[in-house]
């Protein structure tokens, strides 16, 4: 029989926003329960060097930074549930969160910090070769491409970072980008352009991943990717590039699907908050980090918003307690 339990504050998500919210909420004695989600630790767990999180003069590793945040949140009294929310009824009071295990969490207040997930190109061939030449995690899978030719698709920070990381292992890296300039930070672009192993194919879109997914007689696994078909977005001319691996880094989409129809969202799924706050369209529901932030999307901004969400949650719960304490008096007064 799946359990049901009541909590004051549920935090959904375990990136910098969720962990910071947990640290502040635990210190406010709200006994927060944090539901880790599909990828505990979030996007930083698949990065390497983090050079822009203040407080560390030398670069730190993304996974290490997230372990530290989790340990800090645990240390001050956060309870973790390593599960995902599969259904949410935020309009109910208390809010009702159903987990994958079947457990139901009833929460007086909810902080949504579910972040964003990597987008895929959406090609059938991309799905066929996932794990056999197509990857969205250079730090995980770069190992398999030592002295091989790889392509990185995209033009933002993650594409440029992945290309720079892969260049330390691969024989050559080709960055394929639909436009004629990158969105990535100038310092990263500078490093990329200066790197002898990296070249950029501007104004090209990926049409198909080429390879062999069948297991040949005598072989134990599929041969995998051997190329990528790209098309010039200006001239329309197609060409095949010979590569052994394709890393997709075309940006992120907010992980807000489970809350759809209950909260105001942008067309692209970002949860809308009142400008300058973390308040969603429902009282007692706060959103912080990449799930609501289409603009900045940094670990440090997510952490800052997580702090705001915890402080607002504490205020919300105090008001609620106060109102509840007043209610019997009012009832008594009207009866008299």
């Amino acid at each position: 029989m799946p359990a049901t339990r009541s909590v004051r504050l549920a935090i959904i998500g375990s990136g910098p926003a969720g962990y910071t919210a947990a640290i502040y909420a635990a210190r406010a004695l709200l006994k927060p329960v944090l539901i880790s989600g599909k990828d505990p630790g979030g996007q930083l767990t698949i990065t390497t060097d983090v050079e822009n999180y203040p407080g560390f003069a030398e670069a730190v590793q993304g996974p290490w930074l997230m372990e530290q945040m989790r340990a800090q949140a645990a240390h001050v009294g956060t309870e973790f549930i390593d599960d995902i929310v599969v259904k949410a009824d935020l309009k109910a009071q208390p809010a009702r969160l159903t987990l994958d295990s079947g457990e139901v969490i009833l929460a007086e207040c909810v902080i949504i910090a579910t972040g964003a997930q990597a987008k895929w190109l959406g090609l059938p061939s991309e799905q066929t070769f996932q794990g056999f030449g197509v990857s969205a995690c250079a730090t995980c899978d770069g190992f398999f491409y030592r002295n091989k030719a790889v392509a990185v698709v995209g033009g933002g920070n993650s594409a440029v970072e992945e290309a720079l990381y892969l260049a330390t292992l691969a024989a050559s890296v080709t960055v394929i980008h639909r436009r004629d300039s990158f969105r990535a930070e100038p310092i990263l672009q500078e490093r990329l352009f200066a790197h002898p192993k990296i070249k950029v194919l501007w104004n090209h879109a990926v049409e198909e991943i080429l390879g062999d997914a069948t297991i040949a007689p005598g072989a134990f696994g599929p041969a995998g990717v051997h190329g990528v078909k790209v098309r010039d977005t200006l001239s329309g001319a197609a060409q095949d590039l010979a590569v052994d691996g394709v890393f997709v880094a075309i940006g992120h989409a907010p992980a807000s699907e489970v809350f759809r129809g209950q909260l105001r969202m942008s067309k692209t799924g970002y949860i809308k908050v009142k400008a300058g706050t973390v308040q969603t369209s429902l009282p007692g529901v706060f959103a912080c980090g990449d799930v609501t932030d289409e603009t900045y999307r940094q670990a440090v901004t997510a952490a800052g918003m997580g702090c705001m969400a915890a402080l607002d949650a504490a205020r919300f719960l105090t008001h609620k307690d106060h109102a509840a304490a007043q209610a019997p008096e009012k009832a008594g007064a009207s009866a008299a």
Binding site: G131, F144, I215, G221, P222, A223, G224
Partner: peptide, 16 residues
């Protein structure tokens, strides 16, 4: 896979 690279190679593993 780092300590034992030949088995993943044999089975075509290219992602973890």
């Amino acid at each position: 896979i780092e300590d034992s690279p030949s088995t993943p190679g044999r089975y075509g593993v290219r992602g973890i």
